[in-house]
Design a binder for these strands. Structure first.
Lengths: 235, 235
DNA sequence: CCGTGTAATATGTATGTACATAATACGTCA
DNA sequence: TGACGTATTATGTACATACATATTACACGG
């Protein structure tokens, strides 16, 4: 004879919504009413409804009560792709190659993205990531040395800047912009594809608090690269 | 003189982690200890730590206690792109055009994706979405009529299948696979670009419970299309 | 009629207590 | 030494109660 769990209440209310007994826009019975119905404490109902609200199923407002929301097109989520993990997950051997490392004044676009002062230098890296014998990604990355001074000493010969940054900096925010483009001759040569072949481009920017950390342009052969995003599993 | 809130405890513990006082792998003081330190009830600490666990900052195990996790590459999330909203958000005029509608036996690949019985027909739609005078998306969609019989009557002349489905079916699960490709001659003609130009392709599959609803191949001109994903804002 | 102050109300949260549960630590016995 | 059962312990959750807070509804005065 276990007592009534908040999970029982949560499941029951969810079932009423799924079953159409409670339609979007309807007001869910108040905490007191549900507590009475289930024979449990109001706090127990509170937790159940709070979690449903966190899940985006209902909306709660003081005094107004709890209302069923539209089955909204929930956000899709995807793993932040770490090249190494991505490649190793396929079973292919991962190899990293540093093509270039220099301190330089970044072009205007990068300067703006990284919030680097005019004339100030940043760290510019160019790398290639292999999946077995196939070039998987060409990486063109700028690192803000004001935010991450430690990067000045790192040589990035052994492991990629991505792995290094993950360990060195507790990133607080990451943004990706994905697009498709035709490979430039240089990109084609580096990726072992023909110029003009489609490439999948990810532009990644990361921040540490309010300070930009890095901006990377990641170019993948379009013929093989896939990015997957799924909605969170239903409750 | 308000009492100690679970938010205070949560913020304090988070600050210790961010500040390095508690490093990944370290054990967070027990609920009893924190309750004592903050002069609040253990339940209050419990809620603080529980929410930190939900946020992926710490890991909790009975008897073992609470440990700080690696600052994991949190999942990035993106809005599920609804063509109409996407276009209208840019300020451009949205126009929808139905290119074809037929009942047909789907090709093997689609049959597998939609779990349609061999020889069984499905609804095949081809549409184009305009952003002002520019073709924004070419849509090639199959709908499983066993899951959504109502689609047989819909004519999709006025509004797109996407809008129709959102209203008609409470989708439970959505998957996107993004890739880059070179435009086929047909795609190029439909999108007003040159054959071979890069296109950004989204393959979307949706489910209602365990039953596949639809599979759509959405093709966008690579020169203009961008997809953005961000990590959830920091705690 | 309109704005404003106030009472009513549903949710939000803190507390002390009690018991449940999972996992580890450890002692016992073969 | 090793397998197994048991005590210990930290978290997990339920409850009754009390008070906080946001928001609505409504009465009242200009």
């Amino acid at each position: 004879m276990s007592r009534v769990s908040y999970l029982d209440v949560k499941a029951s209310v969810l079932a009423r919504i799924r079953g159409g007994e409670l339609a979007p826009g309807d007001t869910v019975p108040g905490e007191a009413a549900l507590a009475d119905e289930f024979g449990c404490a109001r706090v127990t109902v509170n937790r159940a409804l709070r979690e449903l609200a966190e899940a985006g199923v209902v909306e709660r407002r003081r005094k107004a009560g709890t209302r069923v929301l539209d089955p909204s097109p929930r956000d899709a989520s995807m793993e932040i792709p770490s090249v190494r993990a991505e490649i190793e997950a396929t079973g292919a051997a991962y190899r990293y190659e540093l093509l270039g490392r220099r301190l330089a004044v970044p072009p205007a676009e990068v300067r703006a993205a990284l919030d680097v002062a005019a004339g100030e230098k940043a760290l510019h890296l160019r790398c290639r990531h292999w999946a077995g014998g196939r070039a998987h990604q060409f990486e063109d990355r700028w690192i803000n040395l004001e935010t991450v001074p430690k990067a000045r000493e790192a040589d990035f010969a052994a492991s990629g800047p991505n792995d290094w940054l993950i360990r060195a900096v507790p990133l607080t925010q990451v943004e990706h912009v994905f697009s498709a483009a035709n490979a430039t001759p240089e990109e084609a040569a580096l990726l072992g594809i023909a110029p003009g072949d489609a490439v999948f481009v990810a532009e990644r920017r990361t921040w540490l608090g309010a300070r930009p950390v890095t901006r990377a342009r990641l170019v993948h052969p379009g013929a093989t690269y896939r990015l997957v995003a799924r909605t969170l599993p239903p409750l």
